[in-house]
Design a protein around this nucleic acid. Structure first.
Ligand SMILES: [Mn+2]
Ligand SMILES: [Mn+2]
Ligand SMILES: [Zn+2]
Ligand SMILES: [Zn+2]
Lengths: 138, 138
DNA sequence: AAGTTAATGCACTTAAGTTGCATAAATTTC
DNA sequence: GAAATTTATGCAACTTAAGTGCATTAACTT
């Protein structure tokens, strides 16, 4: 718990009770969560606070938002930054149409795409949809 | 106009007045449109009807929906199918963060990605974000 | 401890998407 | 071509996620 406190402080997020709980919650998950997931996962839960908390996490580089095409935003913890550059956003995501879970494939980077003249790329989002490993083995 | 009528009929969409107008509207655009765009582009406009019309188009393979990460669905005409296979969905989209327009890059296919064992891909969505050619030259 | 700043809780708002149902239009059957 | 049937349209209402305003509470600073 003291470990988490350190992480938050490093990112200039003041470690309140709810924030520590939410970080812990996110850490225990291995798939991305919606705001509803978070809300359900808490006894004490106030939509707005949880919303603002996850937004604070996002702004301060603790989580990244994932748009998997389902229409609701999902969030997942950032990988602990090794270097300084923000290579966080460039991995791809897999959304299982069976179990509805979305996971980060952090070691699968988005391949480089050469665009027509005049286009400048700042960001990318690649989502693969299909059946995940868990759903396939059962 | 008679040309459009043919296209609709080919896709088993009955060519009503509104449908012909909407198809024409989509054809004149070179960027993807939201339901609001469509609504604004019509004198006579009924949200629900336009909504159901675009959904009918989608279901019958006349348009495809694009999720560019802005949170609102956009739609663009499908390319006239040459073969039978549905290679429609595999091109990428570019979303300009300056003019907010999203365009289909129909000749830029999404590169093949090899996933960990157990994952089966059925569909993909790749969106590049940045500054478009028009916004760069001005 | 007092003062200051930030976080939380609650109510309320916005916006996109979607459905139910009555009416109108188009298509089919006779 | 009229009646019957199917489909499309218009209007109202609902759902869900996201976001804001503001008073209260907690945390941090001096
Ligand atoms: Mn991720
Ligand atoms: Mn497209
Ligand atoms: Zn699954
Ligand atoms: Zn642009």
């Amino acid at each position: 718990m003291d470990e988490i406190e350190k992480v938050l402080k490093t990112h200039e997020v003041r470690p309140t009770a709810i924030r520590l709980l939410m970080y812990k919650f996110l850490k225990e998950r291995n798939s991305a969560v919606t705001l509803n997931d978070i809300e359900s996962g808490f006894d004490k839960s106030e939509r707005t606070t949880l919303y603002r908390t996850i937004k604070t996490f996002e702004k301060n580089g603790l989580v990244h938002q994932i748009d998997d095409g389902t229409g609701v935003a999902k969030y997942a913890l950032d990988e602990p930054e090794v270097g300084i550059g923000n290579s966080q956003d460039l991995h791809l995501h897999f959304h299982c149409t069976n179990c509805n879970e979305t996971i980060c494939l952090t070691d699968h980077k988005i391949p480089h795409i050469s665009l027509p003249k005049g286009f400048v790329t700042q960001d990318m989002n690649l989502v693969l949809k299909g059946i995940c490993d868990k759903c396939n083995e059962s």
